[in-house]
């Protein structure tokens, strides 16, 4: 055996043992992270669910049966959909419109505007909820869907504009120049040329905004008061509050129903953008 082959040997074996160690480490973390997730999955089909992970006492769909009613599930989910859907639509439209001149035209105001936007993306929105509440009481927007939608959209806009502008910068300008020569307006070239070319980018902004709002608890918790208008993120607390003994199986079943849309949406965009690393890369800085 020459020294050289010996060296490659040891490197190779060292590499495979390092791989084993890495696998073991990852699996240990995965197991720890998995425990709470296992609880929700197992409890949802357990007729005697309690607070610990255990094999169900017998598979049953009773929990799902019990919660799939208008009061408990459908109305809150519909409210969530109206709130988050409306606000996402508003966010994406405003962000696309705003990103276009920022990406395409040179102006002295671009830089200060973008810096302000970047600054606003990282402000803790939680901190301004008390004044927003006070302000909404003054202008009669408290406990209204439209008020909450406007606030949701405004809070998500800085990040949406920032992402949208960056995606738009990646679309080459030549195609639009041809359209401009043919007399197309800015709006026409935005809708017909730029947005279709940046489909994945628009999808990311849309899904990201929607997912953020779908999971948001504090904003609707503060700005909505009537139980009928509450989205799922707030109504889920009812399982603890008014119904006396907590039905953990039903809570688990509701959690699954409520979480499924955002998980599916996440899988959808991460597939489209090649692995789950798109958002991480987009926020990387």
């Amino acid at each position: 055996m020459t020294p050289r082959t010996r060296m490659t040997r040891t490197l190779a074996s060292r590499r495979s043992s390092r791989r084993l160690a890495a696998d073991a480490g990852l699996l240990a973390v995965a197991a720890a992270f998995c425990l709470p997730l296992a609880w929700v999955l197992l409890s949802s089909v357990d007729s005697h669910a309690d607070l610990r992970v255990k094999a169900p006492d017998g598979l049953t769909l009773d929990n799902f049966d019990a919660i799939l009613t208008d009061d408990i599930t459908f109305t809150p989910l519909l409210n969530s959909l109206i709130l988050c859907g409306g606000a996402t639509l508003l966010t994406v439209v405003c962000a696309a419109l705003a990103a276009y001149p920022l990406s395409r035209f040179r102006s002295r105001l671009n830089r200060p505007f973008l810096l302000t936007i970047l600054f606003a993306t990282s402000l803790p929105i939680t901190a301004i909820m008390v004044p927003v509440y006070a302000l909404f009481v003054q202008v009669d927007l408290i406990d209204t869907m439209q008020g909450t939608i406007f606030f949701f959209a405004a809070s998500q806009l800085p990040f949406a504009i920032w992402l949208m502008k960056n995606f738009m910068d990646g679309v080459p300008k030549e195609l639009e120049e041809a359209a401009w020569t043919d007399g197309a307006s800015s709006l026409q070239s935005l809708i017909r040329i730029v947005l279709p070319l940046m489909g994945p980018g628009v999808a990311v902004v849309t899904v990201f905004s929607f997912v953020m709002m779908w999971g948001n608890f504090f904003v609707p918790f503060m700005l909505l008061l009537t139980p009928d208008q509450m989205p799922a993120s707030v109504s889920i607390n009812e399982f603890f509050g008014n119904r006396g003994m907590v039905a953990y199986g039903q809570l688990a079943a509701f959690s699954i129903v409520y979480s499924t849309p955002v998980i599916l949406l996440y899988v959808l965009i991460s597939r489209r953008l090649g692995g789950g690393f798109a958002l991480g890369g987009a926020v990387k800085g």
Binding site: V29, A30, F33, C34, L35, P36, L37, W39, V40, S43, L51, R52, V211, W214, G215, N216, F217, A232, S233, V234, I236, N237, Y248, L251, S255, Y258, S259, V262, I263, Y266, G276
Partner: peptide
């Protein structure tokens, strides 16, 4: 997949899961 699922779950659901834990 497991770690990202924990991240994508709505905040309140994550709260309940860890409460139970």
């Amino acid at each position: 997949a497991i770690v990202i699922t924990a991240w994508v779950l709505p905040e309140v659901v994550a709260g309940f899961l860890l409460y139970a834990f």
